[in-house]
C-alpha cells in the first residue's frame, strides 16, 4: 500500500487518533475511582518521554547520515550548524517557535546555497 493512497491515509489518521485518544483516556479509564496507578507504570510514564524524544533526535540525524553521504556534505556541517542554532536559541530565548523557524531557515539556506 502506497503511503499516499487514500486507504493508507485513512488508516493512518484512524490509528494515530485512536492511540492518542486512548493515551489521554488512560487515567480516566483505570484510575477514575481514586486508585493510584502502580509505581512501575507511573515511573515509566514519566521517564519514557525524554528517552523517546532523544531517540527521535538520533533517528533524524541517522536519516541525514544515510540520505546525505557525510563526506560529500562537509561532514554534516549544515545539520550540525542548524542544530546548534536551535539548541542555543532555545536555551537563551526559550521560545520554541523562534528556535524552530530560525534553525530551519539556517538549514534551508545552507542546503540551497552553500552545502547542496
Amino acid at each position: 500500500m502506497s503511503g499516499t493512497s487514500t486507504e493508507y491515509l485513512l488508516l493512518l489518521t484512524a490509528v494515530t487518533a485512536v492511540v492518542t485518544f486512548l493515551l489521554r483516556a488512560l487515567p480516566f479509564l483505570f484510575f477514575g475511582t481514586g486508585r493510584r496507578p502502580p509505581a512501575l507504570v507511573l515511573s515509566i510514564g514519566k521517564v519514557l518521554s525524554p528517552a523517546a524524544i532523544a531517540m527521535l533526535v538520533v533517528y533524524c540525524f541517522a536519516c541525514y547520515v544515510r540520505d546525505r553521504a557525510p563526506a560529500d556534505h562537509l561532514f554534516g556541517l549544515a545539520e550540525i550548524a542548524a542544530a546548534v542554532v536551535v539548541v542555543a536559541l532555545q536555551l537563551w530565548k526559550r521560545n520554541p517557535l523562534l528556535s524552530i523557524l530560525a534553525g530551519t531557515a539556517v538549514y534551508m539556506t545552507l542546503v540551497q546555497t552553500v552545502i547542496p
Binding site: 541525514y64 542548524a82 528556535s99
Partner: peptide, 10 residues
C-alpha cells in the same frame, strides 16, 4: 528535527 531538539532541550 528542530522540534524534537527544542523538546529535548527543554
Amino acid at each position: 528535527t528542530a522540534l524534537f531538539l527544542v523538546i529535548l532541550t527543554d
